[in-house]
Amino acid sequence: MGFACFKRLVRNKHMHMTASDVAYNGKVEGDVVVTRADAVINWIRQHSVWPMPMGLACCAIELMASAASRYDISRFGMEVMRFSPRQSDCMIVAGTVTYKMAEVVRRIYDQMGDPKWVVAMGACASTGGMYRSYSVMQGVDNIVPVDVYVSGCPPRPEALLDAMMKLQDKIGNESSVRNLRKTSAGAVK
């Protein structure tokens, strides 16, 4: 979106635009881009998602595979896996969430700084999957809001990469400035 504005400005530069004096000045032509704050913020956020690998079970192996040599998640600016929730933006819940683990997942989610996103990787994290039993939480969305669900048991690394691109699209459409004013409600102390 930022580029679209810029192109329009360049195309129209021979025209008289009184309103553009502030933002578009002949003296600094080419150094200034006018765009919406949302577009800039989202563009930056989109391409530097730092995942928090919440590796719980089998899906964690595919998560590792997507970070390793063949699939190489760094092509999307996501290779910076941070095990500290404070340094990450996107929690990838990879694996079965048991009731015993649920508390931990929620606490880690709360420790992440805003803005934050959650990807439920695989059938178990999305719905409990094949583990319909007494100890497994039937979907991580019972305790944290989920942005993207990935199907598969486990999903192939390609599926995870696809999910991450979907997440990028989602981030790109957010009203980031308006969201800034919202306070993060409902955190566990």
């Binding site: 719980l56 079970a57 015993k100 583990y131 039993s133 497994v136």
Partner: peptide, 11 residues
């Protein structure tokens, strides 16, 4: 332990 106890034996 037990954070990944999925109840395989019961299943």
């Amino acid at each position: 332990l037990g954070y990944l106890h999925r109840g395989d034996e019961k299943i």
